[in-house]
Nucleic acid binder design. Structure first.
Lengths: 368, 368
DNA sequence: ATGAAAGCGCTAACAG
DNA sequence: CTGTTAGCGCTTTCAT
């Protein structure tokens, strides 16, 4: 069934049918009704490919993410889905492979499908990826990318806010020796977390001895290993901040094995607030990063870029905030434990303390 | 840049360019090389929309799932992604909304994009959904659907295998009173699990008193509530099988609160083997359902249906097996606890015991 | 083996 | 306000 056929049956021109379908205001209500009736009757659905071809607009947005098997991925996808739906776009999904050939193939698909905009939500490989789109006049939204170009919209994550809350929360509980278990060095987001930690510690004049900066790998195992290292230290820290939740879970598991009670003997803070965090034992205090907000910002930036054709030069930057979510894996240090009021005060000091927006939608492990 | 332009620059006809691109065998190698050179030089990418329009083949497969925010979803999507990539299809994703209007809109999108096949991987609403595709001559792959039609490929999940392993494993450990916490009644997959349990219990002549069949809702809270009910029973069961992992986690949490030790006082078995299962305390013994296998079967069925145009009548049924995964949430009953050898023997009796294929890719909560 | 030409289904001038 | 018409970029006979 084609538009032509509808035109014939409704005894109007194809133009009128087209106008009716697209809700053009200049079409006689009587005719419009007649057309719609025929469309309804025969079960006609316009062909998007023909439409895309002639209009030059595919109404498809590309979404490239590191791994669909990542904890935050569902939230990102769901958000994109909803927004696309709302704005009448389709989304073309692709995972960013480590292999060059696969990456090129993915890029090819995006281009061949004539996506009108692209969101790259990954913490590695984005630079190489974006490079492959050189010369495509395609708006791209990406996390914290330098240098931004005219078509490059940037979504930046403010790790510092949440980390500051975490550090000050711990300090208020009496912790002075706070360790950090980092993520893999190659992830720029992990690096950003480390820097945020260092800066926030400095803000309140806390030192970070070399041996309290332990490299992790954002995995359960790396967290376990890191805690073994930390536990063997001559002067053990009383709290540890982890670069993601999975690491924190590993830390808690190893702590348990070593007979260390969390939080009594060791306060643990995670990062991301994925699904596991709230179900951990004890439930994990963590720096929440809202992937919904991130996806939202990326989509909006893209949409704006696609709909306007003018503002090509305004390289937008949308900043997403992180926040501490208080649960049960942190508490007073031993020397403060007798001071009953202190714990309450400390909890209050963690300014933006709140449960995440949609706890039940959170997911596990990883982080962008 | 268009195919025409390439033809001009390579001084050949558009037909030759088309043939070259599509790897037709009847094109002179010299010409082909010349064409490819131009294509490479100018960075030409064929337009899939034009291609789809003229060829009548979109090379798009639809995938509809209940909620992208579901634990098993990433595995399904990833599997589809990989396979699509491999076979040069794109996938059009849509979540199955509870609202009628949204559902219709999703169906419309699928049809307008001219998807060549559709996988519906959901445990509710599929019948209504499929109904909306009536008269579309579109191959559809769906979970256990009755009645199967000529274009309806069915993927069925054999819950009984895994449940049998679970029940016999528990029986071997000395458990005679085994409770079941069901899922929501509206989910046909949950109902199937319940039936499998009843049948497997009957197989080994174990009774299921009315009060050992407790309705749950596949949520943490429902698991907690269900255990409260069970714990209050005059004659408490020594083991409980849950309709999904989330329920089992809730059971374990409430058990902990009630001072019941899992597995010593109560053996707990989950269902699905999602991400949480292995990280639970204690790690959860569970009936694993491989969503990778399910997605794989659905895709393959679809592909076959799309590529052949003949076998429209062969309504395939691919059966996916479930298996028990042994972890630490089950053990001997009190009366057997003194018999040292028994536990080993029991573990051996659970025939197909093994760790899941890719533990680290599993996800949390829910179940199809 | 290659080219010329006819559309695929739709939109958007343009003319009326 | 409506209709006519010219393509959008590609594949595919059908000749040659």
């Amino acid at each position: 069934m084609t538009l032509q056929e509808i035109a014939k049956r409704a005894s109007v021109s194809t133009a009128t049918v087209s106008r009716t379908i697209n809700g053009a205001p200049t079409v006689d209500p009587t005719l419009a009704r007649r057309v719609r009736k025929v469309i309804e009757a025969v079960g006609y659905y316009p062909n998007t490919h023909a439409r895309a071809l002639v209009s030059g607009r595919s109404r498809i947005l590309g979404l490239m993410v590191s791994e669909t098997v990542e904890p935050f991925f569902p939230q990102i996808l769901q958000t994109f889905e909803n927004l696309s739906f709302e704005h009448n776009y389709e989304i073309l999904l692709s995972s960013i492979s480590r292999e060059r050939r696969q990456m090129e193939a993915a890029v090819r698909r995006m281009i061949e499908c004539r996506v009108e905009g692209l969101a790259v939500l990954s913490s590695e490989k984005e630079t190489a990826l974006i490079e492959l789109f050189r010369g495509q006049t395609l708006p791209i939204a990406v996390l914290d990318h330098e240098p931004p170009g005219p078509l490059l919209k940037t979504v930046s994550i403010d790790y510092k806010h949440g980390v500051r809350e975490a550090v000050q929360h711990l300090a208020a509980l009496g912790h002075a020796r706070i360790a950090l278990i980092t993520g893999p060095a190659r992830l720029k987001t992990a690096a950003a977390r480390t820097i945020a930690f260092q800066e926030c510690m400095k803000e309140i004049d806390l030192e970070i001895p070399r041996d309290l900066l332990v490299e992790g790998g954002h995995t359960l195992e790396s967290g376990m290993k890191a805690l073994s290292v930390i536990a063997a230290l001559p002067e053990r820290p009383s709290a540890v901040l982890c670069s993601n939740d999975m690491t924190a879970i590993g830390v808690m598991r190893r702590a348990f094995e070593l007979g260390l009670n969390v939080p009594r003997d060791l306060s643990v803070v995670g990062f991301d607030d994925n699904h596991l965090a709230q179900f951990a034992t004890p439930p994990l205090t963590t720096v929440q990063v809202s992937y919904v907000d991130i996806a939202n910002a990326a989509f909006k930036a893209l949409l704006k870029s696609v709909e306007d054709r003018s503002n090509e030069s305004s390289r937008e930057v949308s900043a997403i905030q992180s926040n501490l979510v208080l649960r049960r894996s942190t508490t007073l240090t031993a020397r403060r434990v007798n001071d009953g009021a202190t714990v309450k005060r400390a909890y209050k000091q963690a300014a933006a303390v709140r449960e995440p927006k949609s706890d039940s939608e959170s997911r596990s492990s990883g982080g962008l």
